[in-house]
Design a protein around this nucleic acid. Sequence first.
DNA 1: AATTCGGGGTC
DNA 2: GACCCAGAATT
Length: 230
Amino acid sequence: MSEEQWCLSRETLRDQCLKLQEFRTKVASWYCSHGRDFPWRHADTSYQRVIGELLLQRTRARVVAGFYLDFLAEYPSWESLSRANEKDLQGLLRNVGLWRRRARSLIDLASAVMDTGGQLPDTRAELEKLPGIGQYMASAVLVLCYGEREPLLDVNMARVLERVFGPRQRADIRYDPYLQDLARSVVQVDNAVEANWAVLDLAAGICTIAHPKCHECPLVCLCSFASQAT
DNA sequence: AATTCGGGGTC
DNA sequence: GACCCAGAATT
């Protein structure tokens, strides 16, 4: 590698690092004044946090906000959920979609948790053995319940990251090392939970899939997508 | 890698 | 009326 090439690649790496830091600080600052508030963000048990994430799968946050507290009132613990009547649970989820599969999945997970002492494991390998816990949910449990700096890398966070930092390598987000590493580095901060929420809120309110509000976006000067969109 | 689950919101 | 949503299991 010539000295010129070396300088170029070194410069590019430094730029990427600076871009990452700028991304973090600008999103965090935006979040302070524009962040959303949801009941599950005030959850005070692991159970409540995990239920929030499970209900949010393929379901809009505002819809979940409408019945999340009712769900917790009806099923306040792993123990009560494991003993739930499947038909009753289906009825509670009926107007949310995925109701049959989700009712079964919730009961199965609660039963599995009760079988292992009523507590969730704290490693990815053990978490992903549980029914209904995949790559995303394992990360969610690690960051929300155990304070590890893991990303809530869903389709929305992926969209923001790809617009700013470039496209993924694989079709499936969960097995794309580029996106996974990028997302993980984004949340290497003191409060990883809020860092995750900040990106998700930006994705939901500004960096939307259709008609993104680039003129309101704190990342507009970092983002290659913004310049080509209006 | 592609399909399935799913009602409701959004355009 | 098509498309999408804080995914995971199945094929």
